[in-house]
């Protein structure tokens, strides 16, 4: 339960972070909230020679409404999201999801940027980001670029982030009128990753579904973008038949790994159930 030795760096400006990343390459790991990285280091599953702590980089903090987007600094913690009036007003889905992540103490430290960057299919934000059609700002030696959530998650612990890049900001388009959203997560207990979970954002116009996005947690090598399932809702009243169809299409793309939470069959079925649950909830919330 003791990490291997490493050297610690705590720069206070982003360019210094990037310079250190360049210098140490593979040997370095960024440290955000530390609640995925440090447990892995304690178990000696990870053993970086250099740890670059982002805690002093003030520019990575903060939540703002800008250009029709909620812009969240990568170092914003889960509890900051939960306690933010701005987030509650414009993207309540994020509050609902963050409340279901880990436990209170973990949420004081864990960051949205770390949760997304880690590339763990068990993490909850990735699916939520897919449903919200979020984009991520990545900064590296060559400057900044913006990557859509839909293009970001490539595999387990594998993302579109290039070596030497830092995620600086998460940009979420403020959902328009007629939108309802929900995150439904099945877990064994507080502090557990999802057996299966679904994030849903629905836009209804004149009683029919005008837009829909669905993200799935922990039922594949990455968070899954259930595109076909969402498409199946378009033009429907999101009635029970449409919901069942969407769930079936979501289940069709699941490739979960069996573990003590359940076998493939159960997890796939639960992905369907969570899609149904989230859709009903989202529909009830359409304003």
């Amino acid at each position: 339960m003791i990490p291997r030795p490493f050297e610690y760096h705590a720069p206070s400006a982003l360019p210094d972070v990037i310079a250190l990343l360049d210098k140490y390459g593979d040997e370095a790991k960024l440290l955000a909230g530390g609640h995925s990285l440090l447990p892995m280091m304690k178990l000696r599953f990870a053993g970086p020679a250099h740890v670059i702590d982002l805690r002093k980089v003030a520019s990575l903090k903060g939540i703002a409404l800008e250009g029709g987007e909620i812009r969240i600094g990568a170092m914003t913690t889960e509890n900051e999201l939960i306690f933010s009036a701005l987030v509650a007003e414009h993207v309540p889905l994020l509050v609902e999801a963050a409340r279901q992540i880990a436990d209170p103490q973990v949420r004081y430290k864990g960051t949205i940027g770390g949760d997304i960057s880690h590339g763990d299919p068990g993490n909850d934000h990735p699916a939520v980001m897919l449903a919200l059609d979020a984009a991520f700002v990545l900064a590296g030696a060559g400057g900044e670029r913006v990557v859509q959530a839909a293009d970001f998650f490539l595999g387990t612990f594998e993302t579109a982030m290039a070596p030497g890049e830092v995620m600086t900001q998460i940009r979420i388009p403020v959902p328009g009128p007629g939108t309802g959203a929900a995150y439904a997560k099945l877990k064994r207990k507080t502090g557990d990753y999802a057996t299966a979970a679904a994030a849903v954002v629905l836009r209804m116009k004149d009683g029919t579904c005008a837009a829909a996005r669905i993200g799935l947690t922990n039922v594949g090598p990455t968070a899954l973008n259930a595109h076909d399932a969402a498409q199946a809702l378009l033009g429907t009243a999101v009635d029970e038949a449409a919901i069942a169809q969407a769930a079936a299409k979501a289940m069709a793309i699941c490739e979960p790994a069996a573990d003590l939470r359940g076998d493939e069959e159960y997890k796939t079925a639960m992905a369907g159930q969570m899609v149904e649950r989230a859709l009903r909830l989202a529909l009830s919330r359409v304003k």
Partner: peptide, 24 residues
Amino acid sequence: LPYDEQGNVLGGTLMDYFLPTSQE
């Protein structure tokens, strides 16, 4: 505390071993 066929003990951490919190 289940075992697999090779005799590996599964679920030997508090991630898997169920200790209910105040919430459950």
